[in-house]
Design a binder for these strands. Sequence first.
DNA 1: TTGGATATTATGTATGCACATATTAACCGG
DNA 2: CCGGTTAATATGTGCATACATAATATCCAA
Lengths: 230, 230
Amino acid sequence: MSERSHHTIREAIRDRISSGEWAPGALMPGEVDLAGEYQCARTTVNRALQSLAEDGLIERKRRAGTRIKELPVKRARFEIPLIRQEVEATGAQYRPHLLLREVIDAPNAVTARLQMKTGDCALHLQTVHMADGAPYAYEDRWVNLEAASGILEAPLEEISANEWLLKHAPYSSGDVTFSATLAGPREAAALDIAEGEALFTIDRTTWQDNLHVTTMKLHYRPGYKLKAQV
Amino acid sequence: MSERSHHTIREAIRDRISSGEWAPGALMPGEVDLAGEYQCARTTVNRALQSLAEDGLIERKRRAGTRIKELPVKRARFEIPLIRQEVEATGAQYRPHLLLREVIDAPNAVTARLQMKTGDCALHLQTVHMADGAPYAYEDRWVNLEAASGILEAPLEEISANEWLLKHAPYSSGDVTFSATLAGPREAAALDIAEGEALFTIDRTTWQDNLHVTTMKLHYRPGYKLKAQV
DNA sequence: TTGGATATTATGTATGCACATATTAACCGG
DNA sequence: CCGGTTAATATGTGCATACATAATATCCAA
């Protein structure tokens, strides 16, 4: 890695931005000037600046130049872990415990989310994710059988539905919402806690190529924390 | 934008990956081959593949080649909104309401987090973020005065501490954890709700150049959801 | 057979160049 | 002064090339 790599230059410029050398909203020097300063080609500066723009620190416009963002967008990223990996990382042994597995007409709320026809059948799963025999999280999931019919033969007592889906429909996208909910009777029983505890809850719907695959709600045991970096 | 731009090629390759053309874990063709296929320069393929690698779809090693990831890393990203913007987006009017503003010796838990010397003074703030006069979120914050002494003169009844800090120490990094907590007496009073409700809670510590600036805990009203995309 | 030196190869990166494109500034006729 | 045309310019992008670097394969000597 050269001393003038686009990485190096990007970090150098990042420092200059955060030191306040250019005021928020102000124009910073053009690519040609910076290339002169750093004794490198304009291409290299261009790469560095594009990367900073992706990070939300600057805003670039042709002809208009590059401006420091007024209020830098704070983006948090985190990796959504497989629960199995999350559990095993603590040294505990993971096992998914199936409470319910049925193929039934999905309720309207589910058919709407999965963009299925009303009355279509779907696989309904309720799973407690166990860590060393103790409940870790409770999951209520619906799977669109049109999108993943093979799951009916999957050994879901050994591999969680999520992991099976990841293996068989790996490159899907989806949306996620996080919220806090109170444990009702069902969640309390599944997680072996009292009703009225605060649960960290993840709602997730996943699709691949416009075909909706699955929607689920995941409740973690009280005390769970999700960490991310800005 | 040409038909052979690195964007186009990246998306084309992304589709081929998600179609399963190459098995997870398998080696995909080298840059030279792909460049041949797409009738473009290796440089262009390189850019496309680097971008896919950043997205976590593939793994690249010199000499060893490029492999499809076994379990693609699911990354969720979201932008942490300013509460003011979040409130104003709903059409409501935003105002921060200061419950407490004191400069005192910080407790040990705080000095540890902010890497301050024991007994150093810090600014302690308790704020209710109001939307059209109704409580929206409740924040408990400590500010390291060594890092942001100017905040003592800021009109915190008009601009929230967070926004002031963003303006005056804009390019900081930090970590964030999300959790679910039960409303205690203090949170219930501040948010005008009953004790025992489930609150979506964000803990956040922010620093700039190894100087810790602020740490805070933010409780949202029951029902709040944070949305992200995968 | 083994250990280490050497060659091979795929990706990583810098560069100069050409041209594309978006946006602003300048201009100019009415 | 207005409105539209044109020119100037900063960024966006692709390409050929050269060399760097890391990982692997190969070969040779002990």
